[in-house]
């Protein structure tokens, strides 16, 4: 194809009408060339699925009436678990080799599909680590309305004081001295010193497998539900909980 373009360029010394014709042919070939490159580029991409698996200890988490036990053998039920994953990057030997554009994903255990995030990467990519944030960055928090997973109809946005809820965990336990024994943790806050977005970096243990485990037992066991059962605004408590939330993610 390159030679055809060359031929066209070489034959440019023609009459004015002929020249226009040749240039237009040349342009058409260029266009074809660009399109073919894009097609080739598209072919050399692949879709990687990042799969999140939510567990409670050793058992897969279910949001039905399943009863789990805490470290102290207290019965507990989980009703809601949602969190934002953003800024997905793949690293190889500490170098960023892939960065997803517009990388905002809502994980919601009640919607299985949301737990698998497809990302389009170059097919030849090699990586040994994955990096992402739990939560939404400050800039996005102050930049108005967005659609998709960031749409405020997703129930992950505070209305009385603006900001995304980065992490939402709700459930019941007899030891909560609250109405209906409920506990509610809505973790958010994007302004210093109450920032709650946390960065996770995980080693990829198996080539070609991007499976990430979330263990909610870890965060439940780190909270004294008799004393702390409602955190629903930005502040120190939310920051501490966001640090605890960071530890429930692992690769396997």
């Amino acid at each position: 194809m390159l030679s055809t373009i060359k031929n066209n360029i070489n034959s440019c010394s023609l009459s004015p009408s002929g020249r226009i014709k040749t240039i237009s042919h040349g342009l058409a070939y260029c266009l074809l060339f660009i399109i073919s490159i894009e097609v080739m580029a598209a072919q050399s991409n692949k879709i990687l699925n990042i799969n999140f698996h939510a567990y409670y200890g050793d058992v897969l988490l279910k949001l039905d009436d399943s009863v789990y036990k805490t470290e102290n053998e207290t019965a507990i039920q989980i009703e809601t678990f949602k969190c934002y994953i953003s800024g997905i990057e793949l690293l190889n030997k500490e170098q960023v080799v892939f960065r997803e554009n517009n990388s905002f994903h809502l994980l919601d255990v009640s919607e299985l599909k949301s737990l698998s995030i497809p990302v389009t990467t170059p097919s030849t990519i090699q990586y040994d680590k994955i990096k992402f944030n739990i939560g939404i960055d400050s800039l996005t928090n102050v930049s108005g309305a967005y659609g998709g997973d960031l749409d405020p109809t997703k129930g992950m946005y505070w209305t009385w004081q603006n900001g995304y809820i980065n992490f939402k965990l709700e459930g019941k336990s007899m030891i909560c001295p609250t109405k209906n024994n409920e506990f509610q943790f809505h973790i958010g806050g994007y302004q210093f010193p109450d920032r709650t977005m946390q960065q996770v970096i995980l080693n990829i243990l198996m080539e070609g497998s991007l499976a990430i485990r979330i263990d909610l037992k870890k965060i439940i066991d780190s909270i004294d539900l008799t004393k702390q059962n409602q955190v629903m605004s930005p502040g120190k408590d939310a920051v501490i909980l966001s640090e605890k939330a960071l530890k429930i993610f692992s690769s396997y």
Binding site: P152, T159, W160, Q161, N162, G163
Partner: peptide, 16 residues
């Protein structure tokens, strides 16, 4: 100043 962007303003009275 609880609201940081005009686009998000309407959410507050709708849900209060």
């Amino acid at each position: 100043g609880a609201i940081n962007h005009l686009d998000m303003q309407s959410l507050a009275p709708i849900s209060n």
